[in-house]
C-alpha cells in the first residue's frame, strides 16, 4: 500500500506526520489552556494516587526510626525523560526529608546524573531552610555497569538500613533484585516506572507502585503547584480525544462497508492517516 503523503515547500512528507503535528498542537493547546485556567485560580481536581499520598508517611516513618531515605533515580541516563521526571520528584522528596531532618541517600548509576542529583538535593535542603544539614557524601556515583550499580545499592540497603526506599525512573533487570532486597531489609518501598516489563516486579515487591503516566504526574501531585496541575488536566483532556480517535478506528475496522464509503469519498482509509513509513 502506498503511503498517503502531502507536499509542502518542495518536500514530500507522509500524511501521518501532518496528523501527528496537528494532534501535538491540539495537545499543547489543551495543556496551555488549563495551565492558564489554573494560574487564574480555578480549582482543579486530581484523583488521589496512593503511592504519592504515601510519600509523606514513608518519609515520616524514616524520621521516626532515625534512619535515612534511599532514593534510586533509575539506571537510564539524563537523556531519558523518566530520569528527568525522577529528578523532579527527588527535589520534592529531598525537601520533605530535609524538613524532617532526615538524610536522603541518592546512589546514581550514570556520571552525568550525579552532579544533577547533588545539586537538586543541595537546593532542596536549602529550600527547606536547612542548607547545613546537606551531606555531600549522601549523593554518590556508584558505577555505570548495571549489576555493579545494583550490588552497590543493595549494599547500601543492608549496611545503612534505610527505612524508606523510593525507586523512580527507568529500571530493567535490576528492579526485582533491588525491590526484594529492600523488602527483606524491612523498608517501606515506593516505586514508579514507565518500563512496562518491570512493573509486575515492582507491584509484587513494593508497597506502592506508580504505573506509567503516574510517574510523570508525581511532581504536580507532590508540589500542588497550580500550573503543574493545569498541565495534568490538559493531558487528561487530550487523552479523551485520543480515546475518541481509537473508538472511531475500532468502529471503522469492524464495519468495512462504512470504511469503504469513507475511502471512496476521501480517497484514503481512516487508518492510513496514522501509518508511518518504516
Amino acid at each position: 500500500m502506498d503511503l498517503i503523503s502531502f507536499v509542502t515547500i518542495g518536500e514530500t512528507y507522509p500524511a501521518a506526520k501532518l496528523v501527528m503535528g496537528i494532534l501535538m498542537l491540539l495537545f499543547f493547546s489543551f495543556v496551555l489552556y488549563y495551565t492558564r485556567q489554573a494560574k487564574r485560580g480555578k480549582e482543579l481536581y486530581v484523583r488521589p494516587i496512593a503511592g504519592l499520598s504515601a510519600m509523606n508517611e514513608a518519609v515520616g516513618r524514616a524520621t521516626e526510626m532515625g534512619r535515612p531515605v534511599l532514593y534510586v533515580p533509575g539506571i537510564a541516563d539524563m537523556d531519558d525523560i523518566q530520569t528527568i521526571a525522577s529528578v523532579v520528584i527527588l527535589s520534592e522528596v529531598a525537601k520533605l526529608a530535609a524538613s524532617y531532618d532526615t538524610r536522603t541517600i541518592v546512589p546514581t548509576g550514570k556520571p552525568i546524573i550525579f552532579p544533577v542529583a547533588e545539586e537538586t538535593v543541595r537546593n532542596a535542603f536549602a529550600d527547606a531552610g536547612r542548607p547545613e544539614a546537606f551531606n555531600k557524601d549522601d549523593v554518590r556515583f556508584l558505577s555505570d555497569d548495571q549489576f555493579a550499580f545494583t550490588a552497590g545499592v543493595t549494599g547500601i540497603m543492608l549496611r545503612e538500613k534505610p527505612a524508606t526506599n523510593i525507586y523512580m525512573g527507568a529500571f530493567w533487570a535490576e528492579s526485582l533484585i533491588l525491590a526484594e532486597t529492600g523488602f527483606l531489609a524491612g523498608a517501606i518501598q515506593i516505586a514508579g516506572t514507565a518500563n512496562v516489563s518491570q512493573l509486575p516486579f515492582f507491584v509484587a515487591a513494593c508497597d506502592y507502585t506508580l504505573i506509567g503516566e503516574e510517574l510523570y504526574a508525581a511532581s504536580a501531585y507532590l508540589s500542588r503547584e497550580p500550573q503543574l496541575l493545569g498541565s495534568l488536566k490538559g493531558s487528561d483532556t487530550a487523552k479523551l480525544l485520543w480515546g475518541a480517535l481509537i473508538l472511531i478506528g475500532v468502529i471503522l475496522a469492524n464495519i468495512p462497508a462504512l470504511d469503504d464509503k469513507l475511502e471512496s469519498a476521501f480517497g484514503f482509509h481512516f487508518a492510513d492517516l496514522f501509518i508511518f513509513p518504516k
Partner: peptide, 8 residues
C-alpha cells in the same frame, strides 16, 4: 498513558 505523560 506514559506517552502522554512524556509529552506533557
Amino acid at each position: 498513558g506514559a506517552a502522554m505523560g512524556i509529552a506533557s
